[in-house]
Amino acid sequence: MYGLYPDTEQWRINTAFLILFAVVAVSFFVSEKLKKYFILFLVFVFPFLGIKLISGGSFGLEYVESAAWGGLSLTFIISAFAILFCFPIGVILALGRRSSLPAIKYISIGFIELWRGVPLITVLFMSAVMFPMFLPDGTFIDKLIRVLIAITLFEAAYMAEVVRGGLQALPKGQYEAAKSLGMGYWRMNALIILPQALKLVIPGIANTLLALVKDTPLIFVVGLMELAGMIGLAKTNPKWLGMAMEGYVFAGLVFWIICYAMSRYSQNLEKKLSTER
C-alpha cells in the first residue's frame, strides 16, 4: 500500500486519499450546481494539494522524496495524473492534426507519430536516465515528475488519435451549421463538435485509459515501485518467502477491480449521454 514511505508519515497518504474519497462521495449527493465546484476542485486543486501533503517539505511536514513513494498509492497517483493531463493534451493534438494551419498540423502529426512509434519502456528510460544529462548543471527535476510527464505525453498521443476518429465521424453539415450561425473556431469545437465527437469515442477513450493504468507497473524499470513492483520487492523479503504467487494474484485482482470499475463507469457515461439520433 505505501511502499517505502516512512511508517510514521503514512497518515499523510491516508489523509490525502481520505479527502479524495470524501469529496467524491459527497459530490454524489449534492445538487448539479454544487457538483460543478466539486469537479473543479477535484481537477484543479486537489492534485496539487494531495501531492504537497504527500511530498511535504513545508507546513511543518517532513520532506519525503519521491523515490520512497510506492505501492498502491503510487499506482493511483501516476494513473490519476496521467489520465488528468493526457486527456486535454490529446484533444488539443487531435484538433491540431486537423487544423488548416500547416505549421500546427505538422507539429501535431510529428508529435503524435513520434510518441506513438516508440515503446513506453524506451520513453521511461529516456526520461529517467537520459533526460537529466541534457539539463544544465544544477537544475533538477524529480524523477517521478519526469516519468509522469513521459507517460502523459505518451498516452496523449494515443488519446489524440482516438479523439480524431470521433472528429472524423461527424458529418460535415455539423461544422457548416455551426459556422453558418456565426460561431468561430473555438466556439464551434467547444459547443458543437467536441461534445459529439467525445461521446462517440467513449469506448475508445476508456480503452486507452485502461491500458494506461495497466502500463503503470512498467515504471519498475526506472526504479519506481508501484503495486506490482512492490510485490516483486516483497517476495524477496525472508518473511514473505514463497508467497510470490499469492502476491501476484492479489495484484492482478486489484488491477482488475480498478479497471472493471473504470469500464463500468464508461458504460454508464455512454448511457447517460446518449440522445436519440
Binding site: 458529418p171 450561425l181 458543437i192
Partner: peptide, 30 residues
C-alpha cells in the same frame, strides 16, 4: 454569418442538444 441565416438540405440540427438548446446556443454564445 451571424447576420445571414442558412437552412440546409440535411437540416444539420445539433443532435446532442434539445430543440430549445439548438435555438438558444448561438444567441447566447455569439
Amino acid at each position: 454569418r451571424a447576420e445571414v441565416g442558412m437552412v440546409f438540405q440535411q437540416f444539420n440540427l445539433f443532435p446532442h442538444l434539445s430543440i430549445l438548446d439548438n435555438c438558444t446556443l448561438a444567441p447566447i454564445w455569439v
